[in-house]
């Protein structure tokens, strides 16, 4: 995967960890679960061979990077970043498309689902100097629509799938409350 991207990114209570081969079965289990699959653009189940082929592809690719999301020492989902447009390398791009799913049903629809996106968005706008971020959502996925709109995304196209985009100015304005909530000091409880 692209060397521009750190193997770990931390913030807002979560850690993003670059996907390795050891994660593939977990990813496949999430991706094939009904609650994740229903909102994917393709509905087919992924086989172990397909998962391995996918990993071989993304390991070589310089236009994308895939992470696992860790929260409270538990893997809860996956997120990724891809260049949009003609850039074949993350370092050369200024438009990116972000993807996310929460695989752990305990955290679906939970506030923590915003944390990985905040981490990636901050990295895109601050480190990669992104001009604009993009998201593609199936129109029936109202939860994802609301999610993106709370981050400041606006709908730019609705043609089979809904395309949304986000500028840094809108992101900074809209994400401030979320960042405040997810940046408070965390207490550790003695066991």
């Amino acid at each position: 995967m692209d060397s521009v991207m750190p193997s770990r990114l931390c913030g807002y209570q979560v850690t993003l960890i670059s996907v390795t081969e050891a994660h593939l079965e977990q990813l496949r289990a999430w991706r094939n679960s009904a609650h994740v699959k229903q909102y994917m653009l393709t509905q087919d189940n992924i086989t172990p061979e397909q998962q391995l082929a996918w990993f071989a592809h993304v390991s070589r690719a310089t236009n994308q990077h895939h992470y696992l999301i860790e929260y409270r020492d538990r893997l809860i989902g996956s997120c990724n970043l891809k260049t949009r447009g003609n850039a074949s390398h993350i370092a050369q791009a200024d438009h990116f498309e972000l993807g996310l799913y929460i695989g752990d049903a305990d955290y679906m629809g939970n506030l923590i689902a915003f944390a990985p996106t905040l981490v990636l968005n901050d990295f895109c706008f601050n480190a990669l100097k992104a001009a604009c971020l993009h998201a593609v959502v199936k129109p029936e996925n109202q939860a994802a629509m609301r999610y993106n709109q709370q981050l400041g995304y606006v709908v730019v196209k609705s043609d089979g799938v809904v395309e949304l985009s986000l500028t840094q100015e809108r992101y900074e304005g809209c994400s401030k409350p979320l960042k405040q909530l997810l940046s408070r000091q965390r207490k550790t409880t003695a066991q």
Binding site: Q13, Q180, L181, L182, R186
Partner: peptide
Amino acid sequence: HMILIAELEDTFDIMLDTDDII
């Protein structure tokens, strides 16, 4: 949710930590 947290903290004079907010 952010407004709710502020309202609960004001009402009950407490300071919630992040894990509890989540």
